[in-house]
Amino acid sequence: MPTHFESLLSSLDVSTVLPPEIQFGQALIVDLSRTRPMWQAVGDGNPDEWVLNQMRAIGATMSIGRYNEQRPIYENTEQFEGTPDRDLHIGLDLGVMPGTPLTTPVDATVFSLADHQHQGDYGPTVILRHQEKGLTFFTLYGHLAADTLNKINVGQTLVKGELFGWVGDKSENGGWAPHLHFQIIQDLGEWKDDYPGVTYSNQAEVVLENCPDPNLIIRRDDL
């Protein structure tokens, strides 16, 4: 049964985060979980190239990395060094071209701006604060273009559908293939300009309740 927070998110009148033709267009859903055949198909090759080739084959304009998925891809990054059990992804990864514009799905205040430049981290990061139907919550946008941090200011008000930034490239986004990490957070706790996008599987019950499925806002029918 949906929580009160999930029910509220489902009831919101939202705008798109990405351009509509991308957000609702043809997409390749990529299963990055530990046991999936993709890893055998990639072998010793480049997984980023493998994804791009699969996208071209179906005419996709976006790839999607799933929410609530255990992944092996973090183990060899500086950001996740020494935490092999931290592998549960709690956002949506929306793989698009660098420079793709981002707009706020509902009215917002810019809560924080940061540039987390450890290899494997978020790179330029924005957290927006929302107040809807008596409830406060946050959305996090990771792996952005550095110019985003000059576009907006902490405390600035954004109206639904307003441009606030762009997706970054690999040289500035923490070292990842270009994509948006999009995450919903009910309670930031003591976090200020950051929040984990990957957690420990033994914390799943609590964390997934605090960070529900981002598709409650993205609203694709195939997720």
Score class of each variant (00 low, 15 high):
L163W: 11
D121K: 05
G82N: 04
L144C: 00
I127A: 05
Y195G: 01
G174L: 03
L149D: 03
F137S: 00
T100P: 07
Y74E: 00
F164Y: 15
H130V: 09
A146V: 06
L149G: 01
L88V: 00
R86F: 10
I184H: 13
D87T: 13
Q70I: 13
V126M: 08
F80G: 02
K151T: 13
S171T: 13
D194M: 05
W191D: 14
P105F: 11
D147K: 14
G161C: 02
V154H: 00
F164V: 10
D87S: 05
R129D: 13
L140W: 07
M97I: 14
Q117V: 05
L128V: 07
D121F: 12
Y74F: 09
V154I: 15
P98C: 06
P72Y: 10
A177M: 11
D169L: 02
F164N: 11
T148H: 02
G82F: 05
V154A: 10
E132I: 13
W176D: 05
R86N: 09
L94T: 10
T104H: 12
H179S: 01
T104G: 08
P72I: 15
G175V: 07
V167Y: 08
N76I: 04
P124V: 05
A145G: 04
F164G: 08
G123R: 01
G165T: 10
I90W: 11
I184E: 07
E190I: 11
G123I: 03
G189M: 03
G168T: 06
T103Q: 13
G161Q: 02
P72V: 12
H179Q: 02
G123V: 04
Q119N: 12
T139C: 08
E132L: 12
P84D: 01
K170W: 05
A146T: 08
R129G: 08
